[in-house]
Write a protein that binds this DNA or RNA. Sequence first.
RNA 1: GGGCGGUUAGCUCAGUUGGUAGAGCACCGGCUUUACACGCCGGCUGUCAGGGGUUCGAGUCCCUUACCGCCCACCA
Length: 870
Amino acid sequence: MPDGFLLNDPGAVPDKPALEGLEQKWIARWDAERTYRFDRTRGRADVYSIDTPPPTVSGSLHVGHVFSYTHTDVIARFHRMRGKAVFYPMGWDDNGLPTERRVQNFFGVRCDPSLPYDAAFVPPEKPPKQAISVSRPNFIELCARLTAEDEKVFEHLWRYLGLSVDWSMTYATIGRRAQRISQLSFLRLLQRGIAYQLEAPTLWDVDFRTAVAQAELEDREQPGAYHRIRFATAGSPSSAAFLEIDTTRPELIPACVALVAHPEDERYKPLFGTEVITPLFGVRVPVRAHPLADPEKGTGVAMICTFGDVTDVVWWRELGLPVRSIIQPNGALRPVTFGQEGWDSADAGAAQQHYDQLAGLSATKARVRIVEQLQQSGALVGEPRPITHAVKFYEKGDRPLEILTSRQWFIKTMDHREALLARGRELEWHPSYMQARFENWVNGLAGDWCVSRQRFFGVPFPLWYKLRADGSIDYDARLLPAEDRLPIDPSTDVPEGYRPDQRNQPGGFAGDPDVMDTWATSSLTPQIAGGWGDDQDLFERVFPMDVRPQAHDIIRTWLFDTVLRSYFDFGTLPWKNAAISGWVLDPDRKKMSKSKGNVVTPMALLEEHGADGVRYWAASGRSGTDTAFDPGQMKVGRRLAIKLLNASKFVLANRGAHGAVTAAVDRGLLTSLASLVRQSTADLEQYHYTRVLEMTESFFWSFCDDYLELVKGRRYGDQGADLAASANATLLTTLSTLLRLFAPFLPFVTEEVWSWWQEGSIHKAAWPAPEEVLAACGNVDHPDGVEALQFATTVLGTIRKKKSEEQRPLKTPVTLAVVRAPQAQLALLPTVEADLRASGLIQQLDTQELDVLQVDVTLAPVEGVAGDRA
RNA sequence: GGGCGGUUAGCUCAGUUGGUAGAGCACCGGCUUUACACGCCGGCUGUCAGGGGUUCGAGUCCCUUACCGCCCACCA
């Protein structure tokens, strides 16, 4: 075995080591030497594969990204050193609304899917006031162009942070492979009946003009008002017969299809089956019973509209009510003609007059207008009572969601609830309690997953429909492409057996106009990164993956959807582990976010504190735990890195020969070190990286302050060559081991020091093993050595304390030290006495037996003129 | 309303199966000690959120209350 401790070049240890410039130096070297390149000759058992979260490139990276990606990198580096081929790709999430919106503003364009592709299109220098309409392929080209620039910036930051990603393996969620896999998976789900199309009430964002999914909802507290509205009882000539309801959405009265009360509500029991007449519009609607109606709420009677909220949908479906919809996709009330089928009115003229004042208005404006009308007609009882209530929004939207009936694609989830819960239990969650989030979500699923979006920048649904002779679309006559044609864009590609000129012609075909929800693609990241279908060899080496790292807020979306898709595509979990990271909180304990203006640029942080310093802070945040943004910790990390440089320099420069480890304190140090290695390895395997950093740091600090001070003299030969060699061997073994334990956390400084005396990258060096640490002291633990080291440290500490209390320099000689201790400890004294005398500058050392350790220290008298000191 | 976390020194947080409360930062005092003043030595700091229980013994286990955060549900 070659001597692993020899300096390659004795001049390689710098006189004044510094952190400055280490990032640039090692980024370039790692890139040139392909240090993190995935070795695809290795089989699945030798691979550690990571389903990296693709960051949204149209946003900007913030300190939260730096935080969680560091966690993943620590784990990746650990497994690489353990000998695994680490599959660590990087994806870019450039699919979806954020990118689409940014491209529209940046280039001043708007997507019109009906336009043909224009290969010669060049966007103007400056975005024009009037947006230019472009085809979907042109629009997607612009998206790709803009995101390519963003991706460069992101990659630069990631490299600077030291992520050990294989940069030859990147993917984009709008990339060709992602499109192909999304479409392929969809077509197979379609064939199995798991994907289906349905015309149904759907959550709808009126600004984006698209359907959205349950998983993308969020509640926001909004001001609103209860309006008490009077409905006349139909068929009762008595003008006293009224029914009153409370509503926050009076503008939906024209969309009212029934009133509802609880079946056991005695007040309304007699009215079930009767009819009432809507105010202003004179439409007869039934009074029905349903258990979801809450007698405690409002008057106990609710107005059912198509559709005011999700409860309306339930009532509408379960009571078999008609549709009377008034909200258009853009959120404005559509024109309606009263007196026609479905809009019968007791007084069509008056109804029309009222409604015409509402048509074309947004829901908010219509509400103001109809309240005036209701007041004038006397149907409004009292004044509106202002309240604050939670309203559902699309998480990226600005106006409350509406519910519109539309044709959408769905993926079945409800039928598979039990299987999905079982998958969630198979997955190893870090921390384990995060599994509850998954269970909660699956148990709370209210409907199948709506995956179609009426947007442009996304993966198109890969199919067409036949047109009937009258030009209408026959949705049941689907034209599916062959799998080997994928990806396709049905807005420009033509189905087999058709000519381009048959598009949108009677008897011809029409492309499906929708794109997939961004999660419908993101949920396939293991397949996309692994090359499912077009690099099957790679896929089989990496799938199912080892870990999915991600934040807890997207368990219901990304994690759940990925589990779902993998279950459908392969009948297996997509990964063994889910490592859930927390958020970065600002000092006010709020989640850091752009809108709050408290985001610090990651690049500025990296430049100020160094990548290792920032990583040190990040690595101090446990899995799943939100962590305070704390530049102080970054400073501590930076100091640790500097200390590593200096301590390493001391150990490596001017050292003598090394040999067998014979001294008790040396054996004690190595014994503790071996124990540290055992514990660290076990912890990292369980994703407990935080504790490893803490323990290693604590060991290192005491190594520097106690052990190093204790053996300095011996190491220089005070006690002869053999004991110097023992010290040197211990120092080198410890340094080598500590550097490797630190390497996943502080990749730059450890690599720098490693390069002073070792071949190759530390990041490909073997993770330390206890046997290796103990090799120079007989391959066994030395508990007596541990005690000797602790004993010596305590004695030395007492001497330091005395000097500190006396405000004397540490180099003050101790004229007499009396060590009182139990016999067992005193027996250790001879093994440490020489080190103690040298490090404590002890001139005379006496002992005395006592049941507890106690040291009396007498310092040399103060030199200089007597009386100078009080 | 349901679920999941949390509450330990001024701040940020550790605290493995119950066994004398810890670290770092901050603060105070001291020290040029030829690896490091980007350093070193030392000091100060606590009703472990409140209450109850189990136990010889509880920061740790059980019950309960309060507060903070997050997830989900409700939304007439």
